[in-house]
Amino acid sequence: MNTLKIENLHVSVEDKEILSGVDLTVNAGEIHAVMGPNGNGKSTLLAAIMGHPKYTVTEGSIYYNDQDVLAMSVDQRSRAGLFLAMQYPQEIPGVTNSDFLRAAMNARRETPVSLFTFIKAMEKTINDLEMKEDLAHRFLNEGFSGGEKKRNEIVQMEMLKPSLSMLDEVDSGLDVDAIRIVGNAIKKLREETNMSIIVVSHYERFLDLIEPQFTHVLVNGKIVMEGDASLARKIDTEGYDWIYKELDIVPAAQEEKKRASVSLGACAVNRAVK
């Protein structure tokens, strides 16, 4: 039950291949960290699982509970238990947090949630995430600070109780206290529901709170190394260079950086000549 199985996943954005054959299995209750330098496909992997229209799966498969995820619409994936806490949550003016969340909760229930139950749950969640009391009445993410938006993602997670949560750098933009609050809320929810987690993060502090049991390193759209929690710790202290050396690879972002420096150099030469 509740197993996510990804095989040979190839994903393109505007005809550029970002993921080139990813295999990943997440069993119920497991916590997996996906690490890797920026621009190598971590967010793409999560967005492709959720079904972002910009990302095209060109090859491979994703199954969740033996259901073909790629054949499902975005909302069906959500109702099947998948949740993505986004790196850049959208602002939706005119739609209040409470209307949105109530509609989202009702979308996955046979009978609508009663107003009383909803308000109680909302109050508790706002309290857990230490957010301002007026959250329910504010428009969805509109005018929220970066940190508030990230916390609001976790509010939604807590209310919707998914069976698999994906956290896309949900800790970036959070201060030390907020990281603790968010980390604890996720941990508590996991204890209650046994949800599985795929976490993308650059911060050891956050990973320490989430305690992933498995680590996958994504470079150039492929998982190049896998290990347990100790791999995440090693990356945190030593970086990725030892992996590049060991495997003799150059990550995508560094290649781009090299190209960029050539053009900068050319401009500098042009200016010097003038």
């Binding site: 229209p53 975005v74 909302d75 949740f83 939706i92 003016p93 005119g94 989202a104 979308a107």
Partner: peptide
């Protein structure tokens, strides 16, 4: 906005439900 629609759908709302919520937000003022 396609991104707004995706965001709302990723929480389980169908396209029709998103349309209804956005329309409510637009007309209620």
């Amino acid at each position: 906005d396609e991104e707004q629609l995706y965001y709302m759908q990723s929480r389980g709302l169908s396209e029709q439900q998103c349309t209804a919520l956005l329309s409510t937000g637009y007309l209620m003022p």
